[in-house]
Nucleic acid binder design. Sequence first.
DNA 1: TAAGCGTGGGA
DNA 2: TTCCCAAGCTT
Length: 385
Amino acid sequence: MLRRGVCSDFRVLEDVVFFIVALSCHSRGVSDNLPCDFDGAIARDLLEWYDKHARVLPWRAPPGTPAMDPYRVWLSEVMLQQTQVATVKPYFEKFTTRWPDFASLAAADDADLMAAWAGLGYYARARNLLACARTVAGEHDGQLPRTEAGLRALPGVGGYTAAAVAAIAFDERAVVVDANVERVVSRLFAVETPLPAAKPRIHALADGITPDARPGDFAQAMMDLGATICTARAPRCMLCPLRGDCAAHSGGMPETYPRKTPKPERPQRHGTFFWIEQGGEVLLVRRPEKGLLGGMRALPTGPWQAEPPKLAGAPVAAEWHISDTHISHGFTHFRLDVALAMADVAVRPEVDQGEWWPVAEIEAAGLPTVFAKAARAFGRERCCI
DNA sequence: TAAGCGTGGGA
DNA sequence: TTCCCAAGCTT
């Protein structure tokens, strides 16, 4: 593999290499996919490694064996969107026990499903999961479409998931590109263009090394490699079956790929959560269907803004007391500092909306993590007043 | 198109 | 503690 020389503009060099390899491939009549993996050596080496080292996962058939039930493949792929394997495992077990197929999931109660998803994050996935199950049950005779295009039309199924399910469940050749594959490919070919601009190039490169045979195993092998060997920090190149083909390894700084454009800082916001308790029950509300934590059960909260809102947005007029204890929680694009407001009332007030929930069973309410965290803090406050 | 959307683990 | 990151999708 070409070693990087003293060059003021890596992207120019990269393009030159790209062009030469393209010409070479074209002249051999191999493929128009660029650059090519001349004899499929990368896929062969990777699958050989996968046959020995594949992770054992509840939603995965062992290498070279018939595919797992498409329902489980699909469910696992949705849960795994932006979520790590260890986090998904207990949720996958819970869901497949309670809802073992499309028919049972399609018949699930919305609130039950949202509560079961609580803590896993990205709650739009849960709403789309239900919509998808009902579409499959109602319009596809309970069977997932077998093609990438058919899958892509389902709610919550984007480019990655459609390709992954087609390849893993139905043995269709599909180019599966997730964050692992992006990292592996960007290192293999020393892609200098930063993400996300490099996505089309990386997809083309991934296409060039994807085999016709065993596409599902190949996709999972790429992801296993990315998760266990070709990690974001401190990659274990000495254990990598592809190090002989890896431009980033040759260059000596594989951990610096993929290049990325810097992310903007996360702003700080402030909010207040309200805990009003009467007769051993606390007032909970349901958040609007769309937007942050959409459709989830929650504690009443005022606005989240740059300055502490204090008691603005209180659910009822009462004698509120703001605790010294604060909760901090990080969301994807902002950080939240939460003040805790409590009211002790003798008579249960009338409220426009919401439900009174037994405090002793608050764990079963299916609260998103930020509210569960606050509920625990309120519990500690109450005990020590 | 770029921003909005959760959470927990690891360094 | 803080930051980065992860089997992305939707609008």
